[in-house]
Design a protein around this nucleic acid. Structure first.
Lengths: 94, 94
DNA sequence: GTAAAGTAGTTTATAAAATAAACCAAAATT
DNA sequence: AATTTTGGTTTATTTTATAAACTACTTTAC
């Protein structure tokens, strides 16, 4: 009847992050923060979760003298997102 | 960019309940429990929340000697569901 | 007829999640 | 050189979801 919804993706902020990364392939912390309109703390926590699940890769470097956190979606992440969307349809199909 | 997702609907069980009620117009507790594969406790709590939000109407009566809890979606509930689905699309659009 | 099991739930407790607040180090600004 | 800003992280608090325990019957089996 209803398919399971991956709890890691069934979260407004994490879903927004994944949605962005899916179309952009790569984005930095500040960009994600702006686009998702989230607080830095919340974003930091959610990026960690997605990273630990292997849905995204997080790289820390420097842009000039400032820290730069760059995120990329992984294959696993893309698959998970697609599965999530597919499952969602069992709930919202007309 | 991303639309807000009504937190009341952004929950697997509550979304499933609403999805069922949208197509059935009326359903009793046991039916919902089976179809959503939820525990009675969880279902009871989530029905209360939907009811308090005015998204569903809950009526308690008796079927013979046994209690019967019947749920119906309200206009407000239908609207909220439609809005939720619409908002969702900002996240999952290809 | 009464003990045990089942039905239809509710209430309370616990675990997990989301969010907010506080904090930190370095850089840029005044 | 003191203050503010940038780019975050860590910790604390609040909110949710879920599970466990309980209630009030009813039905079935002895």
């Amino acid at each position: 009847m209803f398919k399971e919804l991956d709890p890691l993706l069934h979260s407004q902020l994490r879903l927004a992050i994944m949605s962005l990364l899916l179309s952009l392939d790569s984005a930095d912390f500040t960009f994600l923060k702006e686009k998702t309109d989230s607080t830095a703390g919340n974003l930091s926590v959610q990026l960690d979760k997605l990273s630990e699940a292997g849905y995204i890769n997080v790289e820390k470097s420097f842009k000039g003298k400032k820290p730069l956190t760059t995120c990329k979606i992984t294959k696993k992440g893309i698959k998970a997102f697609e599965d999530y969307v597919h499952s969602l349809k069992s709930y919202i199909k007309p």
